[in-house]
Design a protein around this nucleic acid. Structure first.
Lengths: 339, 339
DNA sequence: CTGAAAGCGCTAACAG
DNA sequence: CTGTTAGCGCTTTCAG
């Protein structure tokens, strides 16, 4: 016969029922705010709860109701302030809807992402929001398409997964057109490499806008990085500065962290911004407005991106059958002094 | 009679057992890697698992084993890169030990923190790491001291809660002594206000070092803020710049975000750093090295702070009775160009 | 080495 | 309005 090993202080719903002189069903009813309980009975129960110090065991409730009330959020790097703002948006609507957020840093590693997705399969999370590179998502797409998840920022409209993001192609075009309007014709692109779909979209926006302006880009002006670190931006800037006569007069970096690194790298090469080289970033993270020179950048509605992702997911949980379309939020070019 | 509403595709351990022609107990044994199962039997089970596409329901396991394998982390603001680095440290050791991390942003709000602590009470998390202001923690101290949690960065040695942090008093003293050594006698302190214990500790370190150097501080040089935003730092800088002849020649800000704001504010007042005013920050967040001028600051071992906190908590979970002492990690003054 | 069976603590039919 | 009872899906004695 299995024995109960719980410490004596653990009080269960049955204890409360006994103390109140009612059934466990009644206790459950008042706990869950059902209305069909007489007032005196309700009070008896509440009193018993109070004196016994009872706390509901949500693990048991979770099993019974078959939900964990947890939303999983996967980010490639929560050291990047860009993600922090989005995560805050997710968190706020999750909480408003009675969910908590399980935050995981995948480091853009497919294996780690896979193991996090197992949280869904094991019912430990009810749904997931994925901010990982599309390449990483893709590996999962087939087998995971039935799982309740949505994509945020990184998305492949063709993947059949609900998503929210911005029009990266247009945004990159806006930047190039602005720069061209200011007289620049030698415009570099510092891009995050490989897996990121937004990288490709922004590259295409950059290329198309250049073509439309009748400008041919020097191959050396297009740099692919495998990191969004400040340091990576610095290295890219040095590389560009070394071009001598072929040096670009403007640089478009696909992330503010990169752009800040670029500015610093340019400074190290005795080039001043924006006089010698104009610099435009992307994201509009908090620090962008507070450096020297203040960064001209494309603002993404970060908080709203997160909120929308959470709403999309919640909707998918409520109506599993409903077809949820992808949504694109507006971006905005913020003019400051760096370009 | 209650009916089973689970979709037909949901397969349970009983289905696997039936398919393999064994009992659920045996399936469970195989799943949990128990050794007392004959090889042929094990293979039958594994085969049945594979063909049925069975995934263990961790909610059920959690109820049975009475643990959630989740660690709760509460931060006052995950927009601050300082916290991001710590959180990464926590996450890495949590994962190494088979736990996932539930990350919550309390906004330094006692009510929200309380509600998060309820996750512990409801067994949805096995333990917690709290980075909130001591004042917020204190409200919980009495009733929550029995709960398995540890404090990180913010700690009251007298509270009886295991903690990890740095010696803030000494660190602030180091900054002041360095500044005095460079000839400064008019040293301002820009502090986070109110609740934060580290604020008080750093203030005392600042004050004591000043006294030891025989310097009397002008009251106007001590500014209390209720935010660590860049903007808050900027406002403080303007305030200091307006002092005219009484203007300090050095500023010690208790956070890098504040310090970056200060530098920007000073620049707005046409004061240059470090020539007119030297600026020292605290934390050594990633961007600190990449602004102009690069920030002199006190580095905290952020990753290690998080890792240690997680280890402390894990130890407390394993040995509930053991007395865990507080631990102080070394800090380091990083000299760059801002001071 | 394997199986039967007793729950973990809770919710929700169903019957009264 | 309230109680009885059957599980949710799993782990773990205890017997054989």
């Amino acid at each position: 016969m299995p024995q109960t090993v719980r410490p004596s202080e653990e009080v269960s719903i049955a204890d409360v029922a006994a103390r109140a002189g009612v059934s466990v069903a009644t206790v459950s009813r008042v706990l869950n705010g059902h209305t069909n309980v007489r007032q005196p009975t309700r009070e008896k129960v509440l009193a018993a709860v109070a004196v016994s110090g009872y706390r509901i065991n949500e693990l048991a409730r979770n099993l019974r109701t078959a939900e964990s009330r947890l939303l999983l959020t996967m980010v490639p790097d929560f050291g990047n302030p860009f993600y922090a703002a989005i995560v805050r948006g997710i968190d706020s609507v999750a909480r408003q809807n009675g969910y908590f957020m399980l935050l995981c840093d995948t480091g853009a590693d497919p294996l780690r992402e896979r193991s996090y997705f197992d949280l869904l399969r094991g019912r430990r999370a009810d749904g997931a929001i994925c901010l990982d590179p599309a390449a990483v998502q893709k590996a999962l797409a087939e087998e995971a398409s039935a799982l309740p998840w949505v994509a945020c920022c990184e998305f492949d409209p063709a993947a059949g997964v609900p998503y929210v993001g911005i029009d990266n192609h247009a945004a990159a075009g806006d930047v190039v057109r602005y720069l061209v309007g200011r007289g620049h014709r030698k415009i570099a692109l510092i891009n995050s490499g490989h897996g990121y779909l937004y990288g490709r979209q922004r590259f295409e926006g950059y290329r198309d806008a250049l073509v439309a302006a009748g400008i041919e880009a020097h191959p050396a002006w297009q740099i692919e990085l495998d990191s969004l670190d400040y340091t990576a931006g610095e290295a890219a800037a040095r590389q560009l500065a070394a071009l001598g006569a072929d040096r670009p007069t403007a640089v478009f970096a696909v992330s503010d962290t990169l752009a800040i690194g670029v500015i610093n790298g340019l400074r190290g090469a005795a080039l001043s911004v924006p006089e010698d080289v104009a610099v435009v970033g992307f994201d509009d993270i908090a620090v962008a407005a507070h450096i020297d020179p203040p960064l001209t950048t494309v603002a993404q509605p970060m908080q709203e991106l997160g909120e929308t992702a959470a709403h999309l997911l919640l909707k998918r949980l409520r109506e599993p059958e409903a077809q949820v379309a992808g949504v694109l939020l507006p971006h905005q070019l913020i003019l400051r002094r760096s370009a």
